[in-house]
Amino acid sequence: MKPNLVLFDDPILRIDLLPFTYTRPIPLIRCGILSIQEKWERALPGQYSLLSDEYLQEKYPVELGADNLFINGSVFPDISLVGAILELGPGAALYGADEQLLAIRTGPEWRPGHQPEAYAHLVFDRDFGQVSKKWHIHQKNGAEIAADLERLSGQTAFVEISDPFTRCYQAANIFVEEGAIIKASIINAENGPVYIGKNAVVQEGCMIQGPFALGEGAVLAQGTKIRPNTTVGPYCKVGGEVNNCVFFAFSNKGHDGYLGNSVLGEWCNLGADTNNSNLKNDYSHVKLFSYATGEPEDTGLANCGLYMGDYSKSGISTIFNTGTVVGVHVNVFGAGFQEKFIPSFSWGGKADGYETYRLDKALAVAEMTAKSKGKLLEEADRRLLEEVYKRSALYR
């Protein structure tokens, strides 16, 4: 009998991946075309549930059985790793070469962070992909677009581009799903694949360089410039110039302005002419605020931009500095470069200072934001955001 499949959150990595993990388990992070959970569903088919922080369980309940295969939800599946996991018998645990737990097969009593000392200790000594820092999301995005297309191969039907005014370079490397609309644009897939999802829209005059992924129902506004290694997730609308960014879903950057080496969660909105810096003038490594230490953390990268949690918004002409972290439900506006860390549920800007966003007002805006995309803010979402409000008070 097959074991029950569960993707679990490493408690340490949950902190490293804030603010995105305030509102979702790690496997729901999008990198490439698919979320990490969707990658596992295609690599190892089955019914998955998620084991995360207790306050997320109402919205994302875990289902446990007598025999469970717990898989680290920050890890990308590949053939060799899936094979090693499938070989695990009851009471066995699989570790990476760095002693990171990758998978364990055991009963319902196990929880992440517990050391299974009595279990058979197996080691997977090959390299594997993983999101363990927030900048990994955009850093690994281009490679994951290509890997996800392989995962979708044979499971997804692709169609030819019918618009006679769209110019394609390396057309064999362009993958378009049924219902997508593309008009009078330039698509260059010579240096990486381009994926256009079901019912997505590429409006007139867009210029796209692969690797690139446009999710289901998403829209590129007229004249958008897409540079390589970018993902625009389902039901997002994006315009202006975008370079090596990931939009999870339901977020908007509908107007001109530059965004580079950045990650936006769900339900975000960047006002017209919002811009960010993604490179320091001295080309030194960018440091990002760490929720674990409360201090800047060296990313080892020269290019890092904006990392914005769910439901956050910027006013028109907002400017974000290199390596800026914005929490959940932030409304930021005003002149000049903003602070490099803006805690969740903040309202205001650097010029005039920040206030705490009233919870009732924030929830009302969240409800209207969801309605704008034809969705409802459910009671489970409200309670989740209320808990995030409490937990994030430490940083305000």
Rank of each mutant, 00 (worst) to 15 (best):
A380K: 14
K253F: 11
E339D: 15
N68K: 04
D298Y: 09
S392L: 01
G315M: 09
S35V: 10
L270K: 10
N278L: 12
I85C: 06
S312Q: 09
I71V: 14
A393L: 08
D127P: 03
P164M: 05
A146Y: 00
P25Y: 05
S132K: 15
Q47A: 14
G353C: 09
G215L: 06
L28C: 08
S290K: 13
V201N: 13
N321A: 13
A146F: 00
S372D: 02
S185M: 07
E160S: 10
A43Q: 02
L270M: 15
A66W: 07
Y354I: 01
N72K: 11
A189Y: 05
P112A: 11
V388L: 02
A370F: 01
A171W: 02
G315I: 06
K133T: 11
H255K: 13
Y169W: 05
K287S: 14
L50Y: 03
Q57I: 00
G233M: 05
F341H: 12
A366I: 02
D360W: 02
V242T: 14
N188E: 12
G265C: 03
A370C: 13
E190V: 03
T230R: 10
K287H: 13
G96F: 00
A221T: 11
L385Q: 01
V328C: 04
G32N: 10
Y258D: 07
G309V: 07
G260N: 08
G129Q: 08
C245Q: 06
L359G: 11
L376W: 01
E99L: 13
L94T: 02
S290H: 14
F250D: 09
F337P: 04
D10I: 04
L359D: 11
E297K: 14
K198R: 13
I145G: 02
E150Q: 13
N173G: 05
G197M: 04
K237S: 12
M207G: 02
Y22H: 13
E339P: 02
A172L: 11
E379N: 09
Y389Q: 01
W267M: 07
T299S: 15
F175Y: 09
G142K: 01
E190F: 00
I208M: 00
I319C: 12
R105E: 04
Y95M: 06
I33Y: 05
V263H: 10
G113H: 07
D9Y: 12
L81M: 04
I104G: 07
P234F: 03
M1D: 01
E297V: 13
D310P: 11
R227S: 04
F128V: 03
S284P: 07
N261E: 15
K390Y: 00
E204K: 08
R358I: 07
L122G: 00
T356I: 14
I26F: 09
L152I: 08
C245N: 08
E99A: 15
S314Y: 11
L86C: 12
G271F: 10
P296Q: 05
N141A: 08
A97K: 02
I208N: 02
V62P: 05
P116Q: 10
E204S: 07
G294L: 12
P234L: 00
G46P: 09
S52W: 04
V246Y: 10
L279M: 15
N321T: 12
G113K: 03
D360H: 03
G46S: 11
